[in-house]
């Protein structure tokens, strides 16, 4: 196994973010084996959701351990406020608990579902509170959305998070700068197409094309399906 795998904490002993390990490692193994592992992890997440649908609290705890960090980070990135991010994460996990029985694997992975819930709710809150300009001001300080890590001592979990974030950021960093910025704004800002174009001072068609090219390239870099 690679060095990345050896530093994963116990709570990620089960298959976790396959795309991180499979696609972002500096020296990835055979793609087919990694893709199979990623699919296995997605199936494990789906199984956790199914158990949650049967009111299995242990499954909920495991899913929380697997999802809470990226979800909280996403909410915090969108909202720029830890209290609000915590509120969103609580809301999302309760929604997952309540709606787990209705989870449909054909519509995407459990993680994609959870991220979508988190992002949508965070963006809704941003729009509702009309704090868009304030959030944008924060976002523009880091065009690629990459901010310095916490300054405290690193735990095993911190190392994993950093590794994961670093791997993804590497993929994003491989994009042309204009695509990076367009994708980041599209994902974290909650702006409309037109607002993104105005923010970037580019024609709308150009912005759309950058988003398209950026996502397709990330897809090719990070891998395909996880179900």
């Amino acid at each position: 196994m690679s060095a990345l795998v050896t530093v994963w904490p116990a709570y990620l002993a089960e298959p976790a973010w396959g795309f991180v390990r499979v696609r972002m490692k500096p020296n990835p193994p055979e793609p087919s084996a990694e893709a199979a592992a990623a699919t296995e992890r997605a199936h494990f997440d789906a199984e956790l959701l199914r158990r949650m649908g049967r009111s299995d609290r242990e499954a909920f705890a495991q899913l929380y351990d697997r999802f809470s960090r990226p979800l909280f980070a996403t909410a915090l990135r969108v909202l720029g406020n830890a209290t609000e991010a915590e509120d969103i994460v609580q809301d999302v996990f309760l929604a997952l608990w309540e709606k787990a029985a209705a989870f449909d694997t054909t519509r995407g992975s459990a993680f994609a579902w959870a991220v979508t819930l988190t992002r949508n709710r965070a963006i809704d809150r941003v729009r509702m509170r009309k704090r868009r300009l304030e959030i944008l001001a924060t976002a523009t300080t880091e065009d690629a959305g990459v901010q310095p890590a916490d300054s405290g001592p690193d735990s095993a979990d911190d190392l994993v998070a950093k590794e994961q974030a670093g791997a993804i950021r590497s993929a994003v960093a491989a994009l042309p700068a204009e695509q990076q910025r367009a994708v980041e704004l599209a994902f974290f800002s909650g702006l409309t197409q037109q607002e993104i174009a105005e923010k970037l001072r580019e024609p709308l068609g150009t912005v759309k094309a950058r988003i398209r090219r950026g996502l397709l390239r990330l897809r090719d870099t990070l891998g395909g399906r996880h179900d």
Binding site: R69, G108, T118, G145, P148, L215
Partner: peptide, 21 residues
């Protein structure tokens, strides 16, 4: 759409690392 949704969900890891309470 399925693949792109999975891809965009991975952008969650580009957010600065942060621990929930």
């Amino acid at each position: 759409v399925h693949d792109l949704r999975e891809t965009t969900s991975q952008l969650a890891f580009t957010a600065p690392a942060a621990e929930p309470p």
